[in-house]
Design a protein around this nucleic acid. Structure first.
Lengths: 353, 353
DNA sequence: GCGGGTAATGCAATCGTGTGCATCAATGCA
DNA sequence: TGCATTGATGCACACGATTGCATTACCCGC
């Protein structure tokens, strides 16, 4: 195949060498001219830039990365992009990365720790400068392996049972958020409050449940273990919490709670459907509080009172922290405070019950 | 700074040269051994692979890409990842790309054609093998520029007023979907049907509206132009169609339609809220049909009858088509058929009206 | 007129892999 | 024993860009 060498391959995109030939200078001069090096005379610089533009030159970021040993690229690992929560965090990451000249690799893992490690391995091969992992399921022993890779990593809302230690992390304050929800329910008069949790996000579930227990105790109420239902979710997709919430509420109804605090909005929406199916009116017969404040929460009937997570902010902060790590600056983990969004799914308990 | 050169820099990750030194062979031998070349003797191959594994070798994909002139990387351009529609298509793309060894760059453009072109330019610099653009806003004259880059591009649901010509595309059949919705409304007895459209997705809006008009005419009904309201949306975010839908319905109510076909579910949800605010019961006083079948559609009250787009399938197909383009195989554009999902927001018109 | 300084450019190495070609040793065959 | 063949390995270049250092030409001052 002599053709390949003679005819400059199949028409590959032009390089500084091509420009150098056209301008009758060395490729070093072209490189310097394009980078506005003061070493190059004004005329030559202008001429080279002119020619480069005419030839439609596009710098090859791969070659630059190889030389600079920096790709200006980060990897983002999410459970699934189809979940609006992760989508919003992803948006926060992406919109912060882009202006900084960083491109984002996206990889989904569907809650499987092995796939998560595989995704990180792929990113490492691709020489990303850093990695952000949302709701990591990687446990402590693998953590150690990660730290040894020396790749800057920021974890968001880690779900490892050990919490976000050892790695830089940005977390939502699950305990404080749950406390807000419970204080609200207690303040408007509820005393028989149930909790619907979920099994496949162990860390934040534990924190929210702990706040639930503590808030009850602080109000002088002895928690009834029967009022806590932790839905057994598949370790995988976590696609649909709604039916889990519906089933959980069905189990709870015979115990006559006047309010339910749900681990998240999807469970709350499921509970809402179940309540309606059982002929109960929300909030008249039953108050419901969710967690996350996903967009759907405001569109269901009645609109959901919920603990709002600053999802975009989680993503932005994670990206900012990673950016500082890349610059070699010191970074401390952050904990963000959630807010309570009051809507129409909560009200005083029914006096006639 | 002699240290840098003497002490092998700051501890950079190990390369085939390091393995070569440890195994007392040349780096070519290492390269061949790791790639299972038949040129290498069995013992040497085993020894090299053993040492590589012990030293924790990770191949440098950047260097490979430079050499192979192929990055096994694609760029995905979306309007905004926070919209569940784009998130689902993205999921389809990602889950199809990963098993094929392709990594996905993600970039959001917020509906700005200039940002879209900038994103594509960045991807070109990064030498992606191909690009998928969802709901492109790039018009014909820029299209031509794109085609000349010779970069394989697949567009999904292009919104250019000229349609998806000239580039490989996968489109939803907007006309057929809208026709399904209209046939349903006409069949159950509606004759005074309104249309709520949107201005910033001109192509699909035009197709859906055309089907609306044609279906009316086919039923012997002369379309009343006053019953068509096209909400003027910002060219930018397209974040919230809900208030647009609410406002549009408020304008339509004095004209007494018995049913409204909405360009998408978000507009329909806004219309639903507005109807409720005006004391109208859905579907008793007003039937509503949306388009997309986003997750929220099934959780509002009443659940929304809507035209379901195969969102994941759109993403998967786009990725499969790009894959074939990369392999140099011939590819023809595809048009996917939507389905009608019947729920509770539609019913026969109110006799007493 | 010559040495020294400065401005502008080219040479060559480098980043980490992949591979055509040359080299070398061992073996087989005459 | 000598030569051809085969198998295994190393050398060197390529991919495209950046950059330290050498080189060249020019100008200035003594």
């Amino acid at each position: 195949m002599q053709r390949r060498t003679r005819e400059a391959a199949v028409s590959r995109s032009i390089s500084i060498a091509d420009i150098a030939r056209a301008a009758n200078v060395s490729h070093s001069t072209v490189s310097r001219a394009l980078r506005d090096s003061p070493l190059i005379s004004a005329e030559v610089r202008a001429r080279v830039q002119q020619i480069a533009s005419e030839m439609g030159y596009v710098p090859n970021a791969i070659a630059q990365s190889l030389k600079e040993r920096r790709t200006n690229t980060i990897g983002l690992v999410v459970t699934t992009i189809a979940d609006p929560f992760y989508a919003d965090v992803t948006k926060g990451v992406e919109e912060t990365a882009r202006p900084a000249g960083l491109s984002v690799f996206l990889s989904a893992t569907y809650g499987d720790p092995m796939q998560e490690l595989a995704a990180i391995e792929t990113f490492r091969r691709r020489q990303v400068d850093g990695i952000i992992v949302i709701s990591s399921r990687i446990e402590a022993h693998h953590r150690e392996r990660l730290r040894r890779t020396r790749l800057p990593i920021v974890v968001v809302n880690s779900q490892a049972s050990t919490g976000g230690h050892a790695l830089t992390s940005v977390l939502i304050d699950d305990y404080a958020g749950a406390h807000l929800a419970m204080r609200h329910l207690l303040t408007i008069g509820h005393r028989r409050i149930a909790y619907i949790g979920v099994s496949n996000r162990p860390f934040s579930n534990e924190r929210r449940h702990a706040a639930y227990i503590d808030a009850l105790r602080a109000a002088g109420i002895t928690p009834d273990p029967a009022l806590t239902v932790v839905a057994q979710a598949d370790p995988g997709p976590e696609a649909d919490d709604v039916p889990l919430g519906a089933a959980a509420l069905t189990r709870l109804l015979p115990l006559r709670p006047t309010a339910v605090f749900c681990y998240n909005d999807m469970l709350a929406i499921g509970a809402l459907q179940s309540a309606r199916a059982h002929g109960l009116s929300v909030p008249k017969h039953l108050s419901l509080v969710g967690f996350d404040d996903i967009a759907t929460a405001q569109y269901v009937e009645p609109p959901l009172t919920t603990v709002a997570q600053p999802r975009l902010e989680l993503g932005r902060r994670a990206m900012q922290m990673l950016h500082r790590l890349l610059a070699g600056q010191p970074v401390t983990s952050a904990v963000l405070k959630p807010d309570l969004t009051l809507r129409a799914s909560t009200g005083p308990p029914d006096r006639n019950q």
